[in-house]
Simulated scan of single mutants.
Amino acid sequence: MRLSRPARITLGALTIAVLIVVYVPLFVVLVNSFSTSQSLVWPPPGFTLEWWGTAFQNRGALSALWTSVQVASLATVISLVLGTLVAIALQRHSFFGRQSVSLLVILPIALPGIVTGIALNNAFRTILGLQLGFFTIVVAHATFCIVTVFNNVQARLRRTGTNLEEASADLGAGLWTTFRLVTFPQLRSALFAGGLLAFALSFDEIIVTTFTAGVGTTTLPIWIFQNLFRPNQAPVVNVIAVVLVVVSLVPIYIAQRIAGAERVPK
Protein backbone atom coordinates (compact mmCIF):
# COMPACT_ATOMS: atom_id res chain seq x y z
CA MET A 1 0.00 0.00 0.00
CA ARG A 2 1.39 3.39 -1.05
CA LEU A 3 0.60 6.45 1.04
CA SER A 4 0.36 9.97 -0.30
CA ARG A 5 3.05 12.46 0.73
CA PRO A 6 0.75 14.35 3.17
CA ALA A 7 -0.29 11.04 4.75
CA ARG A 8 3.35 9.98 5.19
CA ILE A 9 4.25 13.32 6.75
CA THR A 10 1.28 13.17 9.12
CA LEU A 11 2.01 9.57 10.10
CA GLY A 12 5.69 10.36 10.65
CA ALA A 13 4.87 13.41 12.79
CA LEU A 14 2.44 11.41 14.92
CA THR A 15 5.00 8.63 15.36
CA ILE A 16 7.68 11.08 16.46
CA ALA A 17 5.25 12.77 18.86
CA VAL A 18 4.32 9.44 20.46
CA LEU A 19 7.98 8.43 20.81
CA ILE A 20 8.79 11.77 22.43
CA VAL A 21 5.96 11.42 24.95
CA VAL A 22 7.04 7.87 25.83
CA TYR A 23 10.84 8.16 25.88
CA VAL A 24 11.65 11.73 26.96
CA PRO A 25 10.43 11.04 30.55
CA LEU A 26 12.63 7.92 30.61
CA PHE A 27 15.57 10.02 29.44
CA VAL A 28 14.89 12.52 32.23
CA VAL A 29 14.98 9.70 34.80
CA LEU A 30 18.28 8.45 33.37
CA VAL A 31 19.87 11.92 33.49
CA ASN A 32 18.58 12.62 37.01
CA SER A 33 20.21 9.41 38.24
CA PHE A 34 23.54 11.19 37.67
CA SER A 35 22.38 14.54 39.10
CA THR A 36 24.16 16.15 42.05
CA SER A 37 20.82 17.42 43.36
CA GLN A 38 19.06 15.45 46.10
CA SER A 39 15.63 16.34 44.71
CA LEU A 40 13.91 16.06 41.33
CA VAL A 41 15.02 19.21 39.49
CA TRP A 42 15.58 20.02 35.84
CA PRO A 43 18.06 20.73 34.44
CA PRO A 44 20.50 18.98 36.81
CA PRO A 45 22.95 21.38 38.49
CA GLY A 46 25.77 18.85 38.01
CA PHE A 47 26.60 15.22 37.45
CA THR A 48 27.98 12.52 39.74
CA LEU A 49 28.20 8.74 40.10
CA GLU A 50 27.66 8.94 43.86
CA TRP A 51 24.00 7.86 43.74
CA TRP A 52 24.81 4.71 41.77
CA GLY A 53 27.19 3.58 44.47
CA THR A 54 24.66 4.50 47.15
CA ALA A 55 21.86 2.62 45.40
CA PHE A 56 23.83 -0.62 45.13
CA GLN A 57 24.63 -0.43 48.85
CA ASN A 58 21.03 0.24 49.87
CA ARG A 59 19.85 -2.86 51.74
CA GLY A 60 16.19 -2.04 51.28
CA ALA A 61 16.56 -1.69 47.51
CA LEU A 62 18.68 -4.84 47.20
CA SER A 63 16.21 -6.83 49.30
CA ALA A 64 13.30 -5.58 47.18
CA LEU A 65 15.23 -6.43 44.00
CA TRP A 66 15.84 -10.00 45.20
CA THR A 67 12.16 -10.35 46.14
CA SER A 68 11.10 -9.18 42.68
CA VAL A 69 13.48 -11.64 41.01
CA GLN A 70 12.14 -14.52 43.12
CA VAL A 71 8.50 -13.60 42.52
CA ALA A 72 9.00 -13.14 38.79
CA SER A 73 10.93 -16.42 38.47
CA LEU A 74 8.31 -18.48 40.31
CA ALA A 75 5.41 -16.79 38.51
CA THR A 76 7.15 -17.50 35.19
CA VAL A 77 7.64 -21.19 35.99
CA ILE A 78 3.98 -21.55 37.00
CA SER A 79 2.90 -19.71 33.88
CA LEU A 80 5.03 -21.89 31.61
CA VAL A 81 3.53 -25.08 32.99
CA LEU A 82 -0.12 -24.02 33.22
CA GLY A 83 -0.11 -21.80 30.12
CA THR A 84 1.34 -24.61 28.00
CA LEU A 85 -1.09 -27.22 29.30
CA VAL A 86 -4.11 -24.97 28.75
CA ALA A 87 -2.96 -23.98 25.25
CA ILE A 88 -2.47 -27.61 24.21
CA ALA A 89 -5.84 -28.60 25.66
CA LEU A 90 -7.69 -25.81 23.87
CA GLN A 91 -5.83 -26.07 20.58
CA ARG A 92 -5.60 -29.83 20.21
CA HIS A 93 -8.94 -30.94 21.69
CA SER A 94 -12.58 -30.04 21.06
CA PHE A 95 -15.02 -29.97 23.96
CA PHE A 96 -18.08 -28.10 25.13
CA GLY A 97 -17.27 -24.62 26.42
CA ARG A 98 -13.81 -24.41 24.82
CA GLN A 99 -14.28 -20.80 23.68
CA SER A 100 -15.53 -19.80 27.13
CA VAL A 101 -12.48 -21.34 28.77
CA SER A 102 -10.21 -19.52 26.31
CA LEU A 103 -11.91 -16.23 27.18
CA LEU A 104 -11.53 -16.86 30.91
CA VAL A 105 -7.81 -17.59 30.49
CA ILE A 106 -7.19 -14.34 28.57
CA LEU A 107 -9.47 -12.17 30.71
CA PRO A 108 -7.00 -11.41 33.57
CA ILE A 109 -4.66 -9.51 31.23
CA ALA A 110 -7.56 -7.42 29.93
CA LEU A 111 -9.03 -6.50 33.31
CA PRO A 112 -7.83 -3.28 35.01
CA GLY A 113 -5.07 -4.10 37.47
CA ILE A 114 -6.90 -2.49 40.35
CA VAL A 115 -9.93 -4.73 39.76
CA THR A 116 -7.75 -7.84 39.71
CA GLY A 117 -5.93 -6.66 42.84
CA ILE A 118 -9.12 -6.03 44.80
CA ALA A 119 -10.62 -9.38 43.72
CA LEU A 120 -7.51 -11.35 44.67
CA ASN A 121 -7.16 -9.46 47.96
CA ASN A 122 -10.71 -10.39 48.93
CA ALA A 123 -10.26 -13.99 47.77
CA PHE A 124 -7.03 -14.52 49.70
CA ARG A 125 -8.15 -12.88 52.94
CA THR A 126 -11.87 -13.59 53.25
CA ILE A 127 -12.43 -16.79 51.24
CA LEU A 128 -9.16 -18.69 51.62
CA GLY A 129 -8.09 -17.13 54.92
CA LEU A 130 -4.51 -16.63 53.75
CA GLN A 131 -2.13 -14.04 55.11
CA LEU A 132 -0.94 -11.70 52.40
CA GLY A 133 2.74 -12.07 51.60
CA PHE A 134 5.23 -13.63 49.22
CA PHE A 135 3.03 -16.60 48.29
CA THR A 136 -0.01 -14.48 47.45
CA ILE A 137 2.11 -12.20 45.24
CA VAL A 138 3.40 -15.18 43.26
CA VAL A 139 -0.11 -16.55 42.76
CA ALA A 140 -1.44 -13.12 41.79
CA HIS A 141 1.32 -12.57 39.23
CA ALA A 142 0.88 -16.03 37.78
CA THR A 143 -2.79 -15.27 37.01
CA PHE A 144 -1.88 -12.70 34.37
CA CYS A 145 1.55 -14.06 33.34
CA ILE A 146 -0.15 -17.26 32.16
CA VAL A 147 -1.75 -15.25 29.37
CA THR A 148 1.56 -14.36 27.70
CA VAL A 149 2.68 -17.99 27.65
CA PHE A 150 -0.78 -19.18 26.59
CA ASN A 151 -0.92 -16.78 23.63
CA ASN A 152 2.59 -17.67 22.44
CA VAL A 153 2.05 -21.43 22.67
CA GLN A 154 -1.40 -21.32 21.11
CA ALA A 155 -0.13 -19.26 18.17
CA ARG A 156 2.70 -21.73 17.61
CA LEU A 157 0.39 -24.74 17.78
CA ARG A 158 -1.88 -23.15 15.17
CA ARG A 159 1.08 -22.68 12.81
CA THR A 160 2.60 -26.12 13.22
CA GLY A 161 -0.61 -28.08 12.79
CA THR A 162 -1.05 -31.70 13.80
CA ASN A 163 0.61 -33.60 10.95
CA LEU A 164 3.84 -34.46 12.79
CA GLU A 165 1.99 -35.42 15.96
CA GLU A 166 -0.37 -37.67 14.01
CA ALA A 167 2.60 -39.26 12.22
CA SER A 168 4.24 -39.91 15.60
CA ALA A 169 1.07 -41.56 16.87
CA ASP A 170 0.81 -43.68 13.71
CA LEU A 171 4.34 -44.92 14.36
CA GLY A 172 3.30 -46.15 17.80
CA ALA A 173 4.51 -43.30 20.04
CA GLY A 174 2.49 -42.56 23.14
CA LEU A 175 1.26 -39.14 24.26
CA TRP A 176 4.32 -38.40 26.42
CA THR A 177 6.79 -39.57 23.78
CA THR A 178 5.04 -37.50 21.12
CA PHE A 179 5.09 -34.43 23.34
CA ARG A 180 8.76 -34.91 24.30
CA LEU A 181 10.12 -35.63 20.83
CA VAL A 182 7.71 -33.79 18.52
CA THR A 183 5.54 -31.16 20.22
CA PHE A 184 7.99 -29.72 22.73
CA PRO A 185 10.85 -29.11 20.22
CA GLN A 186 8.40 -27.09 18.12
CA LEU A 187 7.35 -25.06 21.15
CA ARG A 188 10.77 -24.31 22.67
CA SER A 189 11.30 -20.86 21.17
CA ALA A 190 7.67 -19.89 21.85
CA LEU A 191 8.04 -21.01 25.46
CA PHE A 192 11.31 -19.12 25.82
CA ALA A 193 9.81 -15.91 24.42
CA GLY A 194 6.65 -16.30 26.50
CA GLY A 195 8.69 -16.95 29.63
CA LEU A 196 10.80 -13.83 29.06
CA LEU A 197 7.69 -11.70 28.58
CA ALA A 198 6.07 -13.20 31.67
CA PHE A 199 9.18 -12.46 33.73
CA ALA A 200 9.28 -8.85 32.54
CA LEU A 201 5.55 -8.43 33.17
CA SER A 202 5.85 -9.75 36.71
CA PHE A 203 9.09 -7.96 37.56
CA ASP A 204 7.73 -4.44 37.12
CA GLU A 205 4.10 -4.99 38.21
CA ILE A 206 2.91 -2.72 41.03
CA ILE A 207 -0.91 -2.38 41.08
CA VAL A 208 -1.83 -6.01 41.71
CA THR A 209 1.22 -6.37 43.95
CA THR A 210 0.07 -3.50 46.16
CA PHE A 211 -3.18 -5.34 46.93
CA THR A 212 -1.61 -8.76 47.48
CA ALA A 213 1.74 -8.04 49.17
CA GLY A 214 0.54 -7.36 52.69
CA VAL A 215 2.93 -5.97 55.31
CA GLY A 216 6.61 -6.88 55.27
CA THR A 217 6.93 -8.02 51.64
CA THR A 218 8.30 -5.36 49.31
CA THR A 219 9.05 -5.77 45.63
CA LEU A 220 11.24 -3.33 43.72
CA PRO A 221 8.36 -1.33 42.14
CA ILE A 222 6.73 -0.93 45.56
CA TRP A 223 10.06 0.17 47.07
CA ILE A 224 10.39 2.82 44.36
CA PHE A 225 6.87 4.10 45.00
CA GLN A 226 7.41 4.21 48.78
CA ASN A 227 10.70 6.10 48.53
CA LEU A 228 9.97 8.43 45.63
CA PHE A 229 8.95 11.40 47.80
CA ARG A 230 11.12 10.74 50.82
CA PRO A 231 13.80 13.37 51.60
CA ASN A 232 17.11 12.82 49.78
CA GLN A 233 15.90 9.56 48.21
CA ALA A 234 14.99 10.91 44.75
CA PRO A 235 18.44 10.29 43.14
CA VAL A 236 18.59 6.72 44.50
CA VAL A 237 15.05 6.08 43.26
CA ASN A 238 16.08 7.31 39.80
CA VAL A 239 18.99 4.86 39.78
CA ILE A 240 16.74 1.96 40.78
CA ALA A 241 14.19 3.04 38.16
CA VAL A 242 16.87 2.92 35.46
CA VAL A 243 17.87 -0.57 36.61
CA LEU A 244 14.21 -1.61 36.51
CA VAL A 245 13.85 -0.31 32.95
CA VAL A 246 16.95 -2.20 31.82
CA VAL A 247 15.92 -5.45 33.52
CA SER A 248 12.46 -5.19 31.93
CA LEU A 249 13.81 -4.20 28.52
CA VAL A 250 16.29 -7.06 28.06
CA PRO A 251 13.80 -9.97 28.10
CA ILE A 252 11.36 -8.03 25.91
CA TYR A 253 14.12 -7.31 23.39
CA ILE A 254 15.25 -10.96 23.33
CA ALA A 255 11.65 -12.16 22.89
CA GLN A 256 11.15 -9.72 20.03
CA ARG A 257 14.34 -10.89 18.34
CA ILE A 258 13.22 -14.51 18.61
CA ALA A 259 9.81 -13.70 17.13
CA GLY A 260 11.41 -11.67 14.34
CA ALA A 261 13.88 -14.43 13.47
CA GLU A 262 11.07 -16.97 13.20
CA ARG A 263 9.16 -14.78 10.75
CA VAL A 264 12.12 -14.60 8.34
CA PRO A 265 11.42 -16.99 5.43
CA LYS A 266 13.98 -19.75 4.99
Rank of each mutant, 00 (worst) to 15 (best):
residue 94 S to Y: 08
residue 95 F to V: 06
residue 96 F to T: 09
residue 99 Q to K: 14
residue 99 Q to I: 05
residue 100 S to W: 14
residue 103 L to Q: 12
residue 106 I to D: 12
residue 108 P to E: 09
residue 108 P to I: 08
residue 110 A to L: 15
residue 111 L to N: 11
residue 113 G to A: 02
residue 113 G to E: 06
residue 115 V to M: 13
residue 118 I to D: 00
residue 118 I to Q: 08
residue 118 I to G: 05
residue 123 A to F: 15
residue 123 A to W: 11
residue 123 A to E: 01
residue 125 R to C: 03
residue 126 T to H: 14
residue 126 T to Y: 15
residue 127 I to D: 13
residue 129 G to R: 05
residue 130 L to F: 14
residue 130 L to S: 07
residue 133 G to S: 01
residue 133 G to F: 00
residue 134 F to L: 14
residue 135 F to K: 06
residue 136 T to I: 05
residue 140 A to L: 08
residue 141 H to N: 12
residue 142 A to Q: 02
residue 142 A to P: 00
residue 143 T to G: 01
residue 143 T to V: 12
residue 144 F to C: 06
residue 144 F to R: 04
residue 145 C to N: 13
residue 145 C to V: 08
residue 148 T to D: 01
residue 148 T to V: 14
residue 149 V to G: 02
residue 149 V to Y: 02
residue 150 F to Y: 15
residue 152 N to H: 06
residue 155 A to L: 10
residue 156 R to S: 11
residue 156 R to E: 12
residue 157 L to A: 07
residue 158 R to Y: 08
residue 158 R to K: 13
residue 163 N to I: 12
residue 165 E to H: 06
residue 166 E to L: 10
residue 167 A to E: 03
residue 168 S to W: 04
residue 169 A to S: 13
residue 169 A to D: 10
residue 170 D to Y: 00
residue 171 L to M: 14
residue 171 L to D: 00
residue 172 G to A: 10
residue 173 A to T: 09
residue 173 A to G: 07
residue 173 A to P: 06
residue 175 L to C: 03
residue 177 T to E: 15
residue 178 T to M: 12
residue 179 F to G: 05
residue 182 V to D: 10
residue 182 V to K: 09
residue 182 V to E: 06
residue 183 T to N: 05
residue 184 F to P: 02
residue 185 P to L: 10
residue 191 L to G: 01
residue 191 L to W: 05
residue 192 F to E: 04
residue 193 A to K: 02
residue 194 G to F: 08
residue 194 G to K: 01
residue 196 L to K: 08
residue 197 L to Y: 01
residue 197 L to N: 10
residue 198 A to I: 02
residue 198 A to C: 01
residue 198 A to M: 06
residue 198 A to G: 04
residue 202 S to T: 11
residue 202 S to G: 11
residue 204 D to W: 02
residue 206 I to C: 06
residue 206 I to P: 00
residue 207 I to G: 01
residue 209 T to S: 14
residue 212 T to W: 03
residue 213 A to E: 04
residue 215 V to A: 10
residue 216 G to K: 05
residue 216 G to R: 00
residue 217 T to E: 09
residue 218 T to V: 13
residue 218 T to A: 00
residue 219 T to A: 04
residue 220 L to M: 05
residue 222 I to A: 00
residue 224 I to Q: 12
residue 225 F to N: 09
residue 225 F to K: 10
residue 225 F to Y: 15
residue 225 F to E: 04
residue 226 Q to V: 02
residue 226 Q to G: 08
residue 227 N to M: 06
residue 227 N to D: 01
residue 229 F to R: 13
residue 229 F to K: 12
residue 230 R to A: 13
residue 230 R to I: 01
residue 231 P to N: 05
